[in-house]
Amino acid sequence: MADFKIHTMAEMAAAGEHPDVLFWVGCAGSFDDRSKKVTKAVAKILFHTGVKFAVLGTEESCTGDPAKRSGNEFLFQMQAMNNIAILNGYNITKIVTACPHCFNTIKNEYPELGGHYEVIHHSQLLQSLIDSGKLKVEGGDYKGKKITFHDPCYLGRGNQEYEAPRSVIQKLDIELNEMKRSRANGLCCGAGGGQMFKEPEKGNKDINIERTEEALSLNPDVIAVGCPFCMTMMTDGVKNFNKESSVKVKDIAEMIAEAIDF
């Protein structure tokens, strides 16, 4: 990211400034090579649309979502309270994140523990930037491409947001094909509830294979996702069918960032 500098909250606070929005990068967005590309895409869009933003950088820590959903409430609340102390210390009021798990946890589970913020998923931020005219999107390379969107559980069923990611990518003049199991009936990628970090229980198929099969049956050019876990699971699924050269798995932010010429 040579073309602009990412500011941390510590730097901003030292300069006596306050961001419009805090970009909560998340663990996958910080450390996973594939997800880092999504993080950069989000940062690029934020920078070029003139949104004043900052990240916590080394002060960020896991929200505790995987611990909580695996039953470790102690560890979750430890993480939550430490994060809340940092966020409140910087007087954070608005947070955007590209991870539906972070989004859900900070938005819904932090308030009771003392963390009250306006939390949005990056699909919602992109939509508001488009709606307000700050972000102008045209088809670009994606024009006419066949795309299917895989709903993240914690964005869709978990928080009733089905439209924002769809309306954002539809600005690319794509052909959006829905899987039979979509929106409220969407099938999980298989990574939630701590599954990302363990082998699946004994069964006759992996969940991401079941889901990827469904997506591939539509012959898409791109499987669009909005969650780092879904990204991993669907990418692995596509590789399993040796389709990685013809079918790409992309986060909606990457698609938007690629289509606009800043």
Binding site: I6, V25, C27, F31, T58, P66, M196, F197
Partner: peptide, 17 residues
């Protein structure tokens, strides 16, 4: 502070890559 084995000091590395 992450579910994977990474140093917290490396959290912002993406911004420099």
């Amino acid at each position: 502070g992450a579910p994977w084995q990474f140093s917290p000091a490396d959290r912002l590395n993406w911004a420099k890559e």
